[in-house]
Design a binder for these strands. Structure first.
Lengths: 221, 221
DNA sequence: CCAATGCATAATGTATACAATAAGCTGCGC
DNA sequence: GCGCAGCTTATTGTATACATTATGCATTGG
């Protein structure tokens, strides 16, 4: 994507993720153009993309609104992600190279360091976690799968989930990654798929526990 | 989508599907604009959409080309579709209304008529088959699933598959739909999922048989 | 007082001019 | 003859003006 378009895209997306644009709000192209310091043309392009990624929804009358996700929507997203990341893990197990396996190990060691400190480094966790999953998707070698998953893993709710992680959640995530590494090392696709599916499913429950007022564990910050 | 954008989208898509724009060909925005009788603005919008649907790929230097799919790409698409339509069927089984079930039956009866004639009506088959699958997706009631599947089922290869269907394939498809109806009537999600997955998987083999020179059966036309 | 119609306003859709960038070509130096 | 530099042309990116369409309000008729 070109300069102005990319600028508009990441800025609008940031406003949605940060909550500066609350769910349900109507947004006007011209206003966004002013905010981003570009013309309406690249803003429109960014909006179309955000719409296809379900960050934004449009009314029948062509007005744009910040998407407002129900808990059911969120569970849908997790179920699909579970299925697709499971498939990715299965495929990856049969294709992963020793170089990729080594990179995966390195990322998970970085995750281990981030979660074992007295005060866990959530930012580092997120960064290496992202890399970890990206390497797997890469090893799965399916452009289409990558394409579809990209629409899920970057979505607002999934993103915010990590923010509500507990120390013990982060550490469990680290251990589950180790299970995945073992499955990959043995090229056991079925095992990798099961571990991955459980890993994603747990993330959903962590999310729903934290967001339904049940909070059975203490929050990090 | 608005008038000119929609015009550009469907016309370009049609040129790709019909082969008027062969895979690998570079396409220029201005030329397309002339062809479609609109300006570059709606053409660019259509191109972005076609790119996200993998009809078109763009080089690192922002040139657009008609996508060229390998057999592996095609199998990927079928595997994903199998997984997602399977999920849709499972969800639909638990949610389908009697009205939707009646519509499904009606569509499949229309399919039955189309395939039992001396010369099968392929066009009618395609139309009612599409409606049949859409009703299921509707009953599954997951906006996200609908969104993702839309990117798969409309893709060129999947589309052309139906063109290479044999009379016996069409009739088998009709029978498999009846199995699905039985599973829905009993609200048996697991059964529905299995039947649907097999249904899609068979479509892949029909495609690959027809396109690898193996043609074990006679072609329709 | 309610409803419907038409006008005013505001938003999105499209065309076009211009800017930036990539590709291709020509000629020069080696 | 080969390769690279710089210019020329072709193509995409952005801004803006204008067209079209939706929305809300006011006014009028019932």
């Amino acid at each position: 994507m070109s300069r102005a378009s990319e600028q508009a895209y990441s800025q609008i997306r940031g406003m949605i993720l940060s909550g500066a644009l609350p769910p349900g709000d109507q947004i006007r192209e011209e206003w966004l153009a002013e905010q981003c310091g570009v013309s309406r043309t690249p803003v429109r392009e960014a909006l179309r993309r955000l719409e296809s990624e379900l960050f934004i929804r449009r009314s029948e009358r062509q007005r744009s609104f910040v998407a407002d996700w129900s808990l059911d929507d969120i569970e849908d997203a997790f179920v699909l992600r579970e299925m697709m990341e499971g498939l990715a893990a299965r495929r990856a197990a049969g294709r992963i190279t020793s170089v990729q396996l080594a990179s995966l190990k390195a990322e998970n060691e970085a995750i281990g360091r981030a979660v074992s400190a007295d005060v866990p480094d959530v930012h580092a966790f997120l960064k290496h976690n992202k890399s970890f999953h990206e390497i797997i998707l890469d090893a799965a070698a399916s452009a289409r799968l990558t394409n579809l998953l990209a629409r899920l893993i970057e979505q607002p709710v999934v993103w915010r989930t990590a923010q509500s992680y507990d120390v013990s959640d982060l550490q469990r995530s680290h251990r589950e990654h180790n299970e995945l590494l073992a499955a990959f090392a043995r090229k056991d696709g079925g095992w990798a798929e099961s571990v991955m599916a459980g890993h994603i499913r747990r993330a959903f429950h962590t999310y729903s526990d934290a967001h339904l007022g049940k909070k059975p564990r203490s929050a990090i910050s």
